[in-house]
């Protein structure tokens, strides 16, 4: 009887946990949000914009083959940043203007199969 109860309990816990997972702090010091079936972590530092690609359970996904673009609002103007995969699950790009640490904006992902997904950062 114990595994039955334990399994139910753990299942409930697991199901309840992600409800408070909206725009959380990421492992690389950025913010994590949903983008379709993926999760993305956005790290902006100076002119460099890094986006880490994660799956639904926050595990890193290899970024090769993905394309991404970020539109970040800085000083009342949108800044467009094209992102290209570099290593592991990281895509990077350079902004024309220096960015604050937590800019508002959105990231659009294009998967290798052509499907798109976007995530919003407030």
């Amino acid at each position: 009887m114990i595994p039955w109860r334990a399994a139910l309990f753990s299942g409930l816990l697991l199901a309840a946990a992600p409800v408070c997972a909206h725009e959380t702090a990421g492992k690389n010091g950025g913010r994590v949000t949903d983008a379709g079936k993926y999760h993305v972590e956005l790290v902006a530092k100076g002119q460099t914009v890094d986006v880490y690609l994660l799956d639904g359970s926050e595990k890193p996904l290899p970024a090769s083959g993905f394309k991404a673009s970020a539109i970040l609002i800085e000083g009342g103007k949108p800044a467009r940043v094209a992102l290209t995969p570099v290593d592991g699950n990281r895509l990077t790009g350079t902004s024309e203007v220096p960015l604050s640490t937590a800019p508002k904006g959105a990231v659009q992902l294009t998967a290798p199969d052509g499907t798109t997904a976007s995530g919003k950062f407030n």
């Binding site: 299942g11 639904g56 359970s57």
Partner: peptide, 15 residues
């Protein structure tokens, strides 16, 4: 139960 939990995780509800 595990399957249910897994799907909940993958789905994430909001947004």
């Amino acid at each position: 139960a595990l399957l249910g939990a897994g799907s909940a995780l993958a789905h994430e509800g909001h947004d």
